[in-house]
Nucleic acid binder design. Structure first.
Lengths: 165, 165
DNA sequence: TATTGTTATACTCTATAACTATA
DNA sequence: TATAGTTATAGAGTATAACAATA
């Protein structure tokens, strides 16, 4: 009763390894995002950065990179591009002048609704096979993996579990 | 009873967008695979190619690329590397001399058990937060998305649904 | 003409190390 | 001494177009 027995046997794939399937689908949706977001002029990376910044006010680059799982050094160029288009702003943190506080700009905010609509549309296409309920279930499973994998995969001592502050 | 209420509220993330979460986790597990498979001397790509070839006898490069979701032009270099290490073999298809039939070699087969063990170990770490049952559920959800997304995301006419033959 | 594999190219992403300014 | 951001660089991965051999 899991899946209808239709051509279930016909599937090749390495169905044993859910990990490779996850990796493959991750690449597939990134590609899908890229084509769907291209008209707006944003890459998937830039899009998720903008959405994250709108959701979580101003943050340090460190924190943003941690949340988006982007290396601090790679984040620089990404933010440079967004800043060049006036979609985000960087300013020194008065409390710790080493930090740059990154925030979404007015122009970024104006764009982000359109961005979110495009992203949601892309997802509706990509996850069309799942009901809204199943999509929620998938999200819950992935979020639990995300939380635990953060500490389980890198060589961190248990107890170091900072969720990106 | 879903997740214990421990620091559940502390999570930032763009929880609305399951797609970005999927993309992010896909990159994360690829990175994890890379470090875990490095001692064996294989990349995640090469690993999944080997596993796929063992599962599905000899196939054309076209078919393999489709299954692994790798562009035909990119597959060439990947197979060159594997062939240079005698892990796979390429030979002309007598029935259609344009085709190269790719197969895993004896040396590849000898290595693949070790490879599979390493991959399984990496997955056990990565998906530690999920029970075996939940992992199966996740796999089913992802496989359904994978099947439908193939035709839904690229501009294909419905009815063109060749599952990589 | 169309398809398979190949080459070349360019662009994105990823990972590492070294530097600077601040703490 | 350690941390935040930056720069430079090298390595994977991705996408496109053009070509040779074959159908």
């Amino acid at each position: 009763m899991d899946t209808p027995g239709i051509e279930q046997a016909a599937r090749p794939q390495i169905s044993r390894h859910v990990g490779f399937l996850l990796a493959q689908l991750g690449r597939a949706i990134t590609r899908h995002y890229r084509t769907q977001l291209a008209p707006i002029g944003l890459t998937p990376r830039e899009t998720s950065a903008l959405l994250q910044l709108r959701a979580e006010g101003p943050v340090s680059q460190q924190a943003l990179g941690c949340t988006l799982d982007v290396d601090a050094s790679n984040l620089v160029a990404l933010l440079n591009d967004l800043e060049a288009e006036n979609l985000i702003s960087r300013r020194r943190d008065p409390d710790d002048r080493r930090r740059h506080l990154v925030d979404i700009s007015d122009r970024g905010t104006a764009l982000v609704d359109q961005v979110e609509e495009a992203a949601a549309g892309a997802e509706d296409q990509f996850f069309a096979a799942l009901t809204a309920e199943e999509r929620g279930l998938l999200r819950d499973l992935l979020e639990r993996v995300s939380e635990s994998a953060e500490t389980a995969t890198v060589d961190k001592l248990p107890g170091d579990e900072e969720t990106c502050t």
